[in-house]
Design a binder for these strands. Structure first.
Length: 414
RNA sequence: GGAGAGAUGGCUGAGCGGUCUAAGGCAGCGGUCUUGAAAACCGCCGUAGGUUCCACCUACCGUGGGUUCGAAUCCCACUCUCUCCGCCA
């Protein structure tokens, strides 16, 4: 969400941005409503001022009472119209995408993302590499069949050493992020509508959300929702910024409409797990904080020994809340392709305006903070470990950095 | 889940139909005093929106409605917090 004043002062720019981002809000109609709304504010406020003035006279001048009574009818009508108009404007504004960085490439989908760099050496196998699903099944560490039996298709178990490896990775990642100045949270895994709306998941991704029947609660799609929502309606001291937060939570997504897409393995599932990076910062610092999160993501993958590439996400592949976004795609030798494992978005003031998260500095300057939302690691990275560290005998070697946390060096077939 | 109490500015705390943006205190900011600091004294000290923008107007006392010429104050609903009881990882 951007300041509506921007639209008043720079209509063509806002229109062009909406067009480029495929937003179907009628910006001209919105601007017209806003114009009418501004006029109504003036009328209503003038009427209120007059009413307030007359009300003060009522005790000594009974006639004023009658005047105000008739005024109230007109005022009431105008107030109703104003409220309705405001609701319509807010509804339309909630669908308006964020502005875009100049550095965002054009393009329609992920094939148009601009590859920035390749890092790490792809493993070379003297045998036919398997994908993580096959590896996981053979080692008995991924169980999708029972996930479907107990919950539903799209759920799975990490079992035995697979679960140990996964937990080791998350524990290690949290420790690394804490060492980089992040505060660790254990977060609620449900959130209310306002929180999902405020973080931009509503109204844009409403069909991805699991709602709790009869309650104003939904399962979180990411801890971004609860970590950013943490400061809802707060004014942060500028000198306390940037605030760096991390949490490890499950993430729930209905994946409605994506059946058959990446259905192999546990790539697209209804529940996965994630260590998140969130930064609240001053507007001028957000580009640097965005880069900082990328550095952290890369560091984690490098330490794990996963080859990857970084892409600058194109306009067509970026969600409406984003201003600029980097994805990291890990190399999956079993699949024989790069696949998205992390994403890192500078949301500028899109979320902070919706959630009313502001900053105030010593000079009394105020504004909305910027937020950065980035992945740390997810279950997909464990899949990448399985595929990149597989051996000819079917075993999987544990990355060096995780061994202190797993207590074993290799996962071997029984 | 049952019973009770309460939600006012950064905090504390008055306010019970008009003189309320809201007393008093604390914290904070500026000044006097002082070699400097403390103390004392004086002044300032909410947010947002609108406009004819060094000024004025409007809104906001948990949220949403209602009564009234006029609501922090009266009525209704909701939310949240606290205390006690029950249950429980």
């Amino acid at each position: 969400m951007f300041d509506i004043k921007l639209m008043r002062e720079n209509l063509e720019m806002v229109k062009a941005n909406a067009l480029r981002r495929g937003c179907d809000v009628d910006v001209d109609a919105l601007a017209a409503m806003d114009k009418e709304y501004l006029g109504l504010i003036k009328e209503v406020e003038d009427l209120r001022a007059e009413r307030n003035r007359l009300s003060k006279e009522c005790q000594k001048n009974p006639e004023a009472r009658e005047i105000v009574k008739t005024m109230k009818v007109t005022l009431g009508e105008k107030e109703t119209r104003m409220t309705e108009l405001k609701a319509k404007i807010d509804e339309q504004m909630s669908w308006m995408p964020n502005l875009l960085s100049d550095e965002v490439p054009d393009g329609a989908d992920d094939k148009d993302n601009a590859v920035i760099k390749h890092v790490g050496k792809k493993p070379e196998f003297a045998f036919k590499g398997l994908d993580h699903q096959e590896i996981g099944e053979k080692l008995g560490i991924i169980d999708t069949a029972r996930g479907a039996k107990v919950a539903a298709s799209g759920f799975y178990y990490w079992v035995g050493k697979g679960a140990q490896l996964t937990q080791a990775m998350y524990f290690w990642a949290q420790k690394e992020l804490v060492a980089r100045g992040f505060t660790l949270f254990m977060s609620p895994c449900l959130a209310k509508e306002r929180t999902l709306y405020g973080t931009g998941y509503l109204p844009f991704f409403s069909d991805q959300t699991y709602l709790i029947q009869g309650e104003d609660l939904a399962l979180i799609g990411t801890s971004e929702q609860t970590l950013v929502g943490y400061h809802t309606d707060e004014t942060l001291e500028a000198e306390s910024l940037p605030l760096r937060y991390t949490a490890y939570t499950p993430c729930f997504r209905t994946e409605a409409g994506s059946y058959g897409k990446e259905s192999r393995g546990i790539f697209r599932v209804h529940q996965f797990h994630k260590v998140e990076q969130i930064i609240f910062c001053l507007p001028e610092d957000s580009p640097a904080c965005h880069e900082e999160c990328l550095v952290n993501e890369e560091y984690l993958l490098q330490q794990l020994g996963i080859p990857y590439r970084v892409v600058n996400v194109c306009v067509g592949d970026m969600g409406a809340p984003g201003y600029k976004k980097y994805d990291i795609e890990a190399w999956y030798p079993g699949f024989g392709s790069y696949r998205e494992v992390t994403s890192n978005t500078n949301l500028t003031e899109f979320q902070s305006r919706r959630l009313n998260i502001r900053y105030k500095d010593k000079e009394g300057n105020r504004g909305f903070v910027h937020t950065i939302s980035a992945t740390g690691l997810t279950d997909r990275v464990v899949c990448a470990i399985l595929e990149n560290y597989q051996q000819e005998d079917g075993s999987v070697v544990v990355p060096e950095v995780l061994r202190p946390y797993t207590g074993f060096d290799v996962i071997a077939p029984n």
